[in-house]
């Protein structure tokens, strides 16, 4: 429902924007594994959440469970690494969450962040309006400007996603 609303909202912009969605890639899955489970061997575990389990997780976390199959890896020491996608208000974010054998969150990394900017930054007209003294002469048109300042974007969606995964550990993963 929410996803559909998002697509509806952005469809016109996607058609008009030559760059479309800007995807910022921070880490590959393998890099995330090395950071979050350093020096540990992990094996992928197929976890399918039953209807009852999904209901129980939703009740405990107060967060909707959108996917039935978990992308989860288990380390030899009982820790877990879970790859997930969280929908923010305007963006889709791939995250990796590490949970230790006591159910404590040990780390959260953003893998990919997609949002609706990027096309403006690539336009030469936009780039010509630089503020500041020495900018125009030194402007490198090919270099992407990735740092954006503006009123803070809330990371509440991530907090909710992590909460859902911690309850998923409590209800399902700890028994595996």
């Amino acid at each position: 429902m929410r996803r559909r609303a998002l697509i509806k909202k952005f469809a016109p912009a996607l058609l008009l924007a030559p760059g479309g969605v800007h995807a910022q890639v921070y880490l590959s899955r393998e890099q995330a594994r090395q950071i979050l489970l350093p020096g540990k061997t992990a094996t992928q575990v197929a976890v399918h959440l039953s209807k009852d389990e999904r209901k129980e997780i939703e009740k405990a976390s107060d967060v909707k469970v959108e996917t039935r199959d978990l992308d989860a890896w288990k380390g030899k020491d009982g820790s877990w690494l879970i790859f997930d996608t969280v929908m923010g208000r305007y963006e889709a974010i791939d995250i990796a969450v590490a949970i230790d054998s006591d159910g404590e969150t040990k780390g959260v990394e953003i893998l990919t962040y997609r949002e609706m900017y990027g096309y403006e930054v690539r336009s030469p007209k936009w780039r010509k309006q630089f503020h500041g003294k020495s900018a125009d002469s030194k402007l490198k048109v090919n270099k992407d400007i990735s740092n954006i300042s503006g009123a803070t974007i809330s990371s509440k969606g991530i907090t909710a996603g992590v909460k859902r995964l911690v309850h998923t550990w409590e209800i399902v993963l700890r028994k595996l």
């Binding site: 609706m116 630089f130 740092n147």
Partner: peptide, 22 residues
């Protein structure tokens, strides 16, 4: 001489103004 972009106050999910880090 780093460059940044500032969001548009009229449309916060777009960037409006490029700026040099003064």
């Amino acid at each position: 001489d780093s460059r940044v972009a500032i969001r548009d106050p009229r449309d916060p999910h777009r960037v409006a103004v490029p700026a040099v880090m003064l």
